[in-house]
Design a binder for these strands. Structure first.
Length: 643
RNA sequence: GCCGAUGUAGCUCAGUGGUAGAGCACUUCCUUGGUAAGGAAGAGGUCUCGGGUUCAAAUCCCGACAUUGGCUCCA
């Protein structure tokens, strides 16, 4: 007998060769139906794979991420099976589970898949699912594996097998389909009841753009149709919230072919929102000892040769601009830091001046490949809420903590409640990739972790993700639809102080090299606003709304009163307009609701004669009659509270 | 940059070889209406751009540009 330990500590002896699925069956049939995989001594395995020795066992259902990814992985195999039936001779790349489902990369030869083909694939998958074919695991020798896929003519699988060690190769089969696979898989295809093939895309074999491009088929699947429906509804909701669509509908920004791809044009309303964010941050930064600066949009090529950016990115940047007479070369600035380094250098700095915090909403231009551009989140010209902190190495930790504070304050103010921090440190195996004193690195990495801990951040530490010039902390922010975005960043830099020969005079009257910290709580206004629009579904809080109050006269007899009210509100600093169109009140309300204006004031005979306001809140409806002062106070209170 | 899709009025879209359509928005007129669309008339388009095929191209072919789903990249 072998001993199986359950998560609650209970130990049950079973015959060797018993599978977790058998154990589930012995507990209840219902459980057995729901078991997708098993965690055996911390490793996720097939629930049907026999246990041969003492083990800690956890049965995984749909509610476990491990159960879901196994389910999706098996769905990818089911997709492959369907493809093989529909398109004989299809060759397969890889087919893994991913965050929101699964995909399979396939080579269909000359055949091009179209949207119309997707329902056919879905139908075939459902049909094969109903067959309830069991997934079977089989260990094969390398020679046999090569022989199998050689006979099938699948060069991609052959290449994969080539990279595997003999004795560690397994096949999984279900129905008539056999795939090279490490597993694990769910017990049988019957569990895959709801399937949706989402989209098609090209993907290079092994992610290498020099190699053949395969067709990547994305799908998602669930044990129940209701779950799929819910998932599709969420995707629908995401589409509705798309900042590109809302930006258009709310008149926030636009793009022009003539101006150029990836170069957003901020419309008046968008500019108001953006300006309010700037104002908010500027105020907060002044309070925290930042000193604002302004630097030009271009800089001489030598500036970037000094900074090292020219060597590293010059070829992949907008190319230099030349002056007609002197033949000097200027670059559009891709970063603000070289300019800020020169500002730091403009006069001798004492240790008593440190930290120096130079802040600028600096617009930068980066050449992004045409296929990369996307709404506001990936553009070629954008404005960073940038600042560079020059400090001693002893001050790094406190500065980090202050920037974390600032960032959290920003996220809270804008209604982002879920976020984590990713700390990127050196890859210990390739120390030669990093510049700067290893002792400083060690210290900074440690202090970043401490600072994040002391501020109560949930962190993940990723080795090898650090920039060559220093470790960093990035904020990963989750929006209302549980999508994760990388926004703010804090980075330590040992490189630029060196290259620009930055110095300060210490208390010992000697020259010392400061440490530089790059930081941007929003990242860029463009990207942040894109994410914010989707997070809020375009419903800006009162303080950020481009129009705060729409005054809606019932008929043109009350337009004068509406204009008077608008004037009062404007004097109190609220953004307000009167809708004096010759339209019925229902129409005016509808239009203001669609524009997501937070407050609507309906004014007619009653209000004009009593000098009152009939107040309506966006999304909430009629909130009753208020006098002017009470309404103004209500607005002020709502703004003060924030959200 | 690569692969696929798309590009028709300000917006959303119909229009598969014979000189361009709808709804909304816009303008004018009628209407003066109390919490999500009042009525009528009008104006608005070298059908993204450039080539080609054809008696004839929004429509078919080629190329460019832009948008888009991905891939690769991202200081």
């Amino acid at each position: 007998m072998i001993n199986i330990t359950f998560p609650d500590g209970r130990v049950q002896p079973v015959e060797p060769g018993t599978s977790p699925l058998d154990i589930a069956k012995s507990i209840s049939e219902g459980l057995a139906r729901n078991v997708l995989a098993a965690e055996v001594n911390g490793e996720i395995r097939d629930a049907f794979r026999p246990l041969t020795e003492d083990a800690k066992l956890r049965l995984l259902t749909w509610d476990d991420p491990g159960g879901q990814s196994t389910f999706w992985h098996s769905s990818a195999h089911l997709l492959a099976e369907a493809l093989e039936v529909l398109y004989p001779g299809v060759k397969f790349g890889i087919g893994p589970p991913i965050a929101g489902g699964f995909y399979y990369d396939v080579d269909l030869g000359d055949r091009i898949l179209r949207e119309e083909d997707l329902p056919v694939i879905e139908a075939k998958m459902k049909e094969l699912g109903k067959a309830k074919n069991a997934y079977r695991r089989r260990e094969v020798s390398k020679a046999d594996a090569l022989a199998f896929f050689g006979a099938k003519g699948d060069e991609y699988k052959l290449e994969l097998i080539d990279g595997l060690q003999d004795g560690q190769i397994t096949f999984y089969e279900q129905g008539n389909f056999t795939d090279l696979c490490r597993g694990p898989h769910i017990p049988d295809t019957g569990a895959i009841k709801a399937v949706k093939i989402l989209n098609l895309a090209g993907a290079y074999w092994r992610g290498d753009e020099k190699r053949k491009q395969l067709t990547r088929i994305y799908g998602v699947s669930f044990p129940k149709q209701a779950q799929l429906d819910e998932h599709l509804a969420l995707l629908e909701e995401a589409k509705k919230r798309d900042h590109r669509k809302l930006g258009q509908e709310l008149g926030l920004f636009t793009f022009s072919q003539k101006v150029g791809a990836g170069l957003p044009l901020w419309l008046p309303k968008g500019t108001i929102v953006r300006g309010l964010l700037e104002e908010f941050l500027k105020k907060e930064q002044l309070r925290r000892g930042y000193t604002p600066v302004v630097t030009p949009h271009i800089g001489k090529k030598e500036l970037y040769v000094t900074s090292g950016h020219y060597e590293k990115y010059g070829a992949d940047s907008f190319q230099p601009i030349r002056t007609p007479r002197e033949d000097e070369e200027f670059l559009l600035k891709p970063m603000n830091c070289p300019h800020h380094c020169e500002i730091f250098k403009h006069k001798p700095v004492s240790y008593k001046d440190l930290p120096v915090r130079i802040a600028e909403f600096g617009t930068v231009y980066r050449y992004e490949q045409s296929g990369e551009l996307h709404g506001l989140t990936r553009v070629r010209g954008f404005t960073q809420d940038d600042a560079h902190i020059f400090c001693t190495k002893e001050q790094v930790k406190d500065e980090f903590k202050d920037v974390i504070d600032l960032t959290l304050m920003v996220l809270k103010k804008l209604g982002f409640e879920h976020y984590t921090a990713q700390i990127s440190v050196r890859d210990p195996n390739t120390p030669e990739k990093y510049i700067g004193d290893p002792a400083n690195w060690e210290r900074a990495e440690q202090e970043i972790k401490e600072a994040a801990d002391e501020k109560g951040l949930i962190t993940t530490v990723v080795e090898g993700e650090a920039a060559f010039y220093g470790p960093k902390l990035d904020f990963m922010v989750q929006d209302a639809l549980k999508r994760s975005w990388q926004l703010g960043t804090i980075q330590v830099d040992y490189n630029l102080p060196e290259r620009f020969e930055l110095e300060y005079i210490g208390s010992d009257n000697q020259r010392h090299r400061p440490v530089m910290i790059h930081r941007a709580p929003f990242g860029s206004f463009e990207r942040f606003l894109g994410v914010l629009i989707e997070h809020l579904a375009g419903n800006f809080p009162l303080w950020l709304a481009p129009d705060q109050v729409a005054v809606l006269p019932i008929s043109d007899k009350y337009v004068d009163y509406a204009i008077e009210v608008t004037g009062f509100l404007k004097n109190r600093g609220f953004r307000s307009f009167a809708d004096d169109r010759n339209e019925k009140i229902g129409k005016k309300i509808r239009d203001s609701e669609l524009l997501k204006v937070p407050y609507m004031l309906v004014v007619g005979e009653k209000e004009a004669s009593s000098r009152q306001l009939s107040v309506r809140r966006h999304g909430a409806g009629d909130v009753g009659i208020l006098d002017w002062e009470t309404f103004a106070t209500r607005l002020q209170n709502e703004i003060t509270v924030g959200l």
